[in-house]
Design a protein around this nucleic acid. Structure first.
Lengths: 188, 188
DNA sequence: AGAAAAAATGAATGATCATTCATTCACTCT
DNA sequence: AGAGTGAATGAATGATCATTCATTTTTTCT
């Protein structure tokens, strides 16, 4: 991941990875069989790292759906996730999604997991607030898209845009969509 | 662009490009000097293609800021822009933004152009609607991020998600943010 | 300690590529 | 027609890389 962030996915060689690990040239093939396999495992690792943090963030959040939804969204802009190096790796893989079905599949399955959980949270919030004409799954997908887009902005314009601006944008979205729940941004 | 969409940026060789063009091996270096230069020009071409369509879409839109803003957003989900092959190319470059300053610069400058124009449209809409506490630049950035994120969803989940769903999500955002202007989605 | 297993080395191999350039081709003038 | 110009060819070059594997080093047992 360090190598991908530094040199880009196309330009990281197994030699780079070995050097980064402080080991010798042939080491990656010994442990990962092939470069393709290493990259697949890297994406799985990244996805799993996110899932671990996501599950933990929800476990720590309270019982209220609105609090849980906020916790889920806030995670995306914590330093442990919204780190320019990690974001670069996500985008490196997304950049190959069209040409590498294996990457697409991993991302797609991962996305579905969050769509379910966040969709369910949205459903509960919508019920509570009697928000009419709001589809919970659509809201969950929009939130996911907003996050990914804001990550790109963090990547492209680090000088003028940071994770705090991004979190503000998410709060703004939540306030507009679910005004009764997020009227005053008391959190974070 | 065809090659990048099909094989990914790291795996497209100058030979692939030459073959796609129906020409011989050395042709790319003859016309573009180097591979690096070809890639830079490709990104510039893509950005310029978008700008052309953006300017034309605004030129065709009416005088009302709300109509103009809607036209700008709707463009992003027209087939000529929201095409899986073109999206793959955008993401291929975004995937290297961290490691290639040249790409970041082109994207950043391009983004700023739209931030100005869309920000100004948001400002006008906010004035008209007396929407309180809404920062026009923040709204413009959020809309841009939403678009980019929705593009990613189109790339990753083409089976369950298309440009129409994406446009619905944008309409939903506009309706929540500027209810007086987009209450009934009479357009597209 | 010392045998056995596991991990790591790094030189060698063979493939792939970007780039070069002498030559050929196609077209435009007069 | 034929000289002159620009475009295109494709074989050759040299560099980079993934991968292999015989050998060495380290760790884990008893």
């Amino acid at each position: 991941m360090k190598c991908i962030a530094r040199k880009g996915m196309g330009s990281t060689t197994l030699g780079d990875v070995a050097k980064e690990a402080g080991l010798s040239a042939g080491i990656v093939n010994l442990h990962f069989e092939s470069k393709e396999n290493l990259l697949n495992e890297t994406l799985k690792f990244l996805a799993n790292d996110y899932k671990t943090q996501f599950d933990r963030a929800l476990a720590r959040a309270g019982d209220q759906p609105a609090d849980r939804l906020l916790a889920a969204m806030a995670l995306d802009f914590k330093p442990s996730i919204c780190d320019r190096r990690k974001l670069a790796v996500w985008f490196a893989f997304w950049g190959e999604v069209k040409s590498r079905p294996a990457y697409r599949k991993i991302c797609d399955e991962s996305d579905r997991y969050y769509e379910d959980i966040v969709g369910e949270l949205c459903r509960a919030v919508i019920d509570e607030g009697q928000y009419s004409n709001v589809d919970p799954l659509a809201a969950a997908n929009a939130l996911k898209a907003l996050t990914n887009g804001l990550w790109l902005t963090c990547l492209i314009s680090p000088q003028t845009w940071d994770r705090h601006h991004a979190m503000d944008a998410v709060m703004s979205y939540l306030r507009n969509a679910f005004p009764k729940h997020y009227a005053n941004d008391s959190k974070n």
